[in-house]
Amino acid sequence: MDKSAIFDVIINNIEEIFPQIPREQIRLDGSLVELGANSIDRMEVVTFSMEDLGIKVPLQSLAKIDNLAGLVDLFHKHLHESA
């Protein structure tokens, strides 16, 4: 799976949790915090996205992520390690 497809999975989960956020506001260089997500909302997006992708990422790895591009990169790395 390429990074674009991973980003689509994340976008779909953001839209499910935050239906009021227009899709065009969700950018790779943006963060969930900028979109108004609290810690529980962010965890839901991450957890649902990992479930959809069939991966498990150590939670401590998420602490270093500051935008959606970093999340995509982390998920991409884990997808290819588990393949």
Rank of each mutant, 00 (worst) to 15 (best):
M1N: 07
M1H: 07
M1T: 04
M1V: 12
D2V: 03
D2Y: 01
K3S: 07
K3Q: 09
K3A: 08
K3W: 04
S4H: 02
I6V: 10
I6N: 00
I6M: 04
I6F: 06
F7Y: 10
D8M: 00
V9T: 05
I10Q: 00
I11Y: 03
I11F: 02
N12F: 03
E15M: 09
I17H: 10
F18S: 02
F18K: 09
P19A: 06
P19S: 05
P19R: 10
Q20K: 15
Q20H: 15
Q20M: 15
I21R: 07
I21P: 10
P22M: 10
R23E: 14
R23D: 15
E24H: 12
Q25L: 03
Q25R: 06
I26N: 02
I26T: 02
I26L: 01
R27S: 13
R27M: 15
G30S: 12
S31K: 05
L32P: 01
L32W: 07
E34Q: 14
E34F: 11
L35N: 09
L35V: 06
G36E: 05
N38M: 12
N38C: 09
S39M: 11
S39V: 05
I40A: 11
I40S: 05
D41F: 05
D41L: 14
R42T: 14
R42I: 06
R42Q: 13
M43S: 15
M43D: 13
E44R: 14
E44K: 11
E44V: 14
E44D: 15
E44A: 15
V46G: 00
V46A: 06
S49A: 04
S49I: 06
M50T: 10
M50C: 12
E51V: 14
E51Y: 11
E51P: 00
D52Q: 04
D52P: 08
D52R: 05
D52Y: 04
L53N: 13
L53A: 09
G54M: 06
I55Y: 01
I55F: 09
P58N: 05
P58Q: 08
L59M: 15
Q60I: 12
S61N: 05
S61E: 14
S61K: 09
L62Q: 10
L62C: 08
A63S: 14
K64C: 11
K64P: 10
I65W: 02
I65F: 13
I65N: 03
I65G: 06
I65Q: 08
I65L: 05
D66R: 13
N67M: 08
N67W: 01
L68Y: 10
A69H: 11
A69R: 13
L71N: 03
V72C: 07
V72L: 01
D73C: 07
D73M: 11
D73I: 07
L74S: 00
L74A: 06
L74W: 03
L74Q: 04
L74G: 01
H76Y: 09
H76E: 12
K77V: 03
H78V: 08
H78Q: 04
L79T: 00
L79Y: 01
H80G: 09
E81I: 14
E81F: 12
E81H: 12
S82D: 11
A83E: 08
A83V: 14
